[in-house]
């Protein structure tokens, strides 16, 4: 494969050599630096930095028009609409009840999903780090769902949870009545947590496994000689030494969980009713899909979510740095 790639690459290099040398002579070293940075920074600027600035402009303007010149400045009205509540715990008392339904759904999702996800990842990592045969095979097994697209994850499970699906077959075989899983609020919520754990646990298990493997074996051997029980060795050796990695994993899982959308949207579409509608879906539907399209409110909501993410990411970057120093 290397040779196949090298041939056209070599040809390209020859084609570019002369004009590049000319450009270097005209523009100098600084010009070359600019040249190397330009493509990435242009795309970056146009599709990341500019939108970021525009986001604020959208959040401060009203109306249903998409283009900024046709929108009118409304100040903080969009934020007021989102944040005004009689009682923030009760979405029905809020001006934008859907937003708060999405907020509390997301909070419940994040709370449950991160705990289960990190728990499953931790147990998996510990077991993969133990004395097992064919470790590579098992690592691959747990990693498999991570590569699947959210649409595939959603569809695989939708097919299993459907009325005449595999799960209901198991229920019947066990002598219970079939359940319409995805039209039940509680089950739909639990399964939205379940499939996202299913899809992502392998990823975090891998990070934790790398952390576990970095712990020197001789510490455990010394503990074994002192007749330390496995439980005690876990509390006194594994946990303290893995803690930096574990914190990074928790924050990373939090960042991802706050943005939950894809696989749950495919599985439940946010339903039944609004019971699995999370923040990103609220933003998507307010901004693009629903008949009550309101880009300003969607932008304001995404800035609020972005604020939470920035705090979490700064925490993560700080933690990563701290971990790497440990």
């Amino acid at each position: 494969m290397g040779a196949v790639l090298a041939a056209p690459a070599g040809l390209l290099a020859h084609l570019f050599d002369a004009p590049m040398r000319l450009w270097q002579r005209i523009a100098g070293r600084g010009g070359m630096i600019a040249f190397f940075l330009a493509p990435n920074m242009a795309i970056f600027g146009l599709f990341v930095i500019v939108p970021l600035g525009l986001n604020v402009a959208y959040a401060l303007s009203g109306g249903t028009a998409l283009f900024l010149p046709q929108r009118s400045y409304v100040g903080a009205a969009n934020f007021e609409r989102l944040l005004t509540c009689g009682d923030h715990m009760d979405p029905a008392t809020c001006r934008d009840d859907l937003f708060w339904i999405a907020v509390w759904n997301t909070v419940r999702f994040v709370g449950l999903q991160v705990v289960v996800l990190v728990g499953v990842a931790m147990v998996t990592a510990l077991i993969l780090n133990g004395k097992i045969r064919a470790r590579g095979f098992w690592r691959a097994v747990f990693f498999f769902p991570v590569l699947l697209s959210p649409v595939v994850v959603g569809l695989i499970w939708k097919w299993i949870f459907q009325r005449q699906g595999l799960l209901n077959w198991v229920m019947v075989e066990l002598g219970m009545d079939p359940v319409n899983w995805l039209t039940d609020r509680t089950w739909a919520f639990l399964f939205s947590v379940g499939i996202s754990v299913w899809a992502h646990a392998g990823f975090y298990a891998l990070i934790l496994l790398a952390g576990l493997q970095a712990i020197p074996r001789d510490i455990y051997e010394a503990a074994e000689m002192d007749r330390t029980s496995p439980g005690r060795a876990f509390r006194r050796i594994t946990l303290p030494l893995l803690w930096p990695n574990l914190l990074v994993v928790i924050v990373l899982a939090l960042i991802r969980a706050v943005q939950v959308f894809d696989e749950v949207y495919v599985l439940t579409g946010g339903g039944p009713g609004t019971s699995t509608m999370y923040l990103t879906q609220y933003i998507y539907e307010t901004g693009f899909a629903s008949s009550l399209r309101n880009p300003g409110v969607a932008a304001a909501a995404s800035l609020l979510m972005g604020g939470v993410l920035v705090v979490l990411t700064i925490a993560q970057l700080g933690l990563t740095r701290w971990r790497d120093r440990q």
């Binding site: 970056f44 146009l46 599709f47 990341v48 930095i49 500019v50 939108p51 970021l52 600035g53 525009l54 986001n55 402009a57 959208y58 998409l66 283009f67 900024l68 943005q259 959308f261 990103t280 933003i283 998507y284 901004g287 693009f288 880009p295 969607a298 932008a299 995404s302 800035l303 979510m305 972005g306 993410l309 920035v310 990411t313 700064i314 970057l317």
Partner: peptide
């Protein structure tokens, strides 16, 4: 700037990105 944009996932920029792409 690059580190800072690590913090901004696409899902936060949907509305303005759509307008830029459309423009």
């Amino acid at each position: 700037v690059i580190v800072a944009t690590l913090m901004i996932p696409l899902s936060v920029n949907l509305v303005p990105l759509y307008s830029v792409v459309s423009a």
